[in-house]
Design a protein around this nucleic acid. Structure first.
Lengths: 342, 342
DNA sequence: CTGAAAGCGCTTACAG
DNA sequence: CTGAAAGCGCTTACAG
């Protein structure tokens, strides 16, 4: 390994001066700089990240903490991870993956090692013990998602108000007035407080009435089979529905196929619009699905940027709420006669 | 921050002795150990990972290097990442994500920082410049996948021979003799040498004949739409096919739905068996798909274990080839009269 | 503009 | 079984 000592010797300067040019942290005369750069090139010098971290008290490592639970991360977590890692790399940082259990102890243990400059916390719950652990640790952090009262914390999240608004506007403009929101199943204890469900439901309830829409909410599990089962309930209990907003992407596939099997035309009879969908979803269905596309990559990028700002002592960035964006395909269309069922 | 100095002072010993009990690296008398442990508990001491890394020349950080290309990682990469991270955590290591371009320079740059003890390289190509960069760096590494001649390198991979064997056996026992392999589209320059396609095709070609099966290979892109298009080609060009092995999971969804749309019964007329599938796939289709399940989690775990063995100077573990496992559902069934088409 | 020196918080021969 | 000390490779006041 070639060290600053080696470079300094070859250039005939002190290691301090080498450090100044490596980090561009103090003015160095052109000639000296030139000799040092030559020496670095000759020797193939790379500054050791660990020594730098110890001396500067900055590791340039960020942690992505996510719950390592039974229930899996959504498929859009992959693009979230990779976007965060790419952004970190661009900003001269590394991203480590920290699978943590839901209690605070494991996170506290990891924080104590002093390995990371900051933490990105995923899948934040409305009342989350890990947030308290982070606060106590005094390590900078940013949330992906929100606690019940997110104001005190740096966070980025999906803008559910805007997502619901844009989704409703789309269906409303197509003439739909009988619109149902299918939210997630909250019987699982860990899901009762799941922020995305709570916020989407609140937004829907708040916005539907002003458009003359009855805010009906159904629930369904995350699988295609759950979506098929949902189709039956929908036709039985809400037979005049013409538009469906649905939170679970795999369930939307089952819903569409089962509705068609039962003779309904999509979108002729019923328009189906998944709300937080990954980019692969549309093509998995026939007809292809119009979706509200999850802003996973943007959230990963913004989360890392916000965290690094905090770490560097800048003004904490304001919350960033990013809506899902409408991507038109073939599962939404004009509402025919309200309540019409073949 | 409480340091070993603080602990040593409170316990009335030297920091060396504190280090010995923290790391359990030298015998310490019961009384001394007791005082030190008490002091650590009182003060809430945590050993600083960065200082430890600098002094011991072991960071306990592993890098997961994956190509940050346009074409996306497969959805099973997520469970691969999380499995590797969980295994690393269990073995007292951290896992950093390194999106690297395909040329060697970026990897060399990262390696030079001295941040990681070892590298796991994903999506290895048959002729991969990054492998040379890793070899030159003298940093321990393990491959997920294989180069053309993998013998010199520590690696784990899918066992394509066994996967094809088990898949063929399954269909053969059901009476199928007209079986087609659908491999990936190799027109994309970056895919010409894609190991999984090459090895699966070789295995199929090598094994089919001995079972009296004509080794027909078709190709298709990764999307559901490509799978639908494939259905037409299959019925036109290989009308007597009764069994399909297919490498692209999303394409399998399009294939099944288009075959049904054209009046074929699955599996009555044609059995469809995806070969390297994620666990979500079966439920996304109707009928549910029988699959050969990708061993993503096992590969992540084994890759990390192998890498840590190398790092710790043990005998390099032998290559680990893990087959995909058959998971029965409803897309495969007995072959009816060979060549029968309704 | 440049250097000598202390210090980051540990580990590890070496000596006793 | 325990300690004094060197050293890991940098950064950063401080002094000139």
């Amino acid at each position: 390994m070639v060290t600053m000592r080696d470079v300094a010797d070859r250039a005939g300067v002190s290691i301090a001066t080498v450090s100044f040019v490596v980090n561009d942290t103090k003015p160095v005369s052109a000639g000296t700089r030139q000799r040092i750069e030559q020496a670095m090139a000759d020797l193939g010098f790379r500054r050791n990240a660990v020594a730098r971290a110890l001396a500067s008290r900055r590791t340039h490592i960020l942690a992505m903490a996510y719950p390592a639970l039974d229930h899996d991360l959504s498929s859009s977590s992959l693009e979230f991870f990779t976007s965060a890692a790419a952004t970190a790399a661009k900003l001269d940082h590394h991203l480590v993956l920290w699978p943590v259990s839901n209690d605070a102890a494991e996170l506290t243990e990891l924080l104590g090692q002093g390995l990371v400059d900051g933490v990105l916390l995923m899948e934040v719950q409305l009342d989350d013990p890990r947030v308290a652990a982070l606060t106590d640790s005094r390590v900078p952090f940013a949330l992906i998602g929100r606690t019940a009262d997110p104001a005190p914390f740096v966070h980025v999240d999906i803008d559910f108000e805007a997502t619901i608004r844009d989704a409703l506007t789309h269906l409303h403009e197509l003439g739909h007035r009988r619109i149902v929101l299918v939210s997630g199943d909250r019987t699982d204890p860990s899901m009762i407080d799941y922020g995305p469900y709570v916020r989407a439901e609140e937004a829907f309830a708040g916005q539907a009435e002003s458009r003359g829409i009855q805010p009906t909410i159904l629930r369904c599990g995350p699988t295609a089979a759950a979506g098929r089962e949902l189709a039956g309930r929908l036709l039985d209990d809400q037979p005049d529905t013409t538009g469906v907003l649905i939170m679970k992407e795999y369930a939307s596939l089952g819903l569409v196929s089962e509705l068609r099997r039962r003779g309904r035309d999509i979108p002729g009879d019923i328009s189906v619009l998944p709300l937080v969908a990954s980019k692969e979803l549309p093509a998995l269905s026939d007809p292809e699905l119009t979706i509200m596309r999850s802003p996973g990559p943007e959230l990963g990028r913004l989360g890392v940027q916000a965290l690094i700002q905090v770490i560097e002592g800048h003004e904490p960035p304001p919350p960033q709420l990013i809506p899902c964006h409408l991507e038109l395909a073939a599962s939404t269309g004009p509402a025919l006669a309200a309540g019409s069922v073949p």
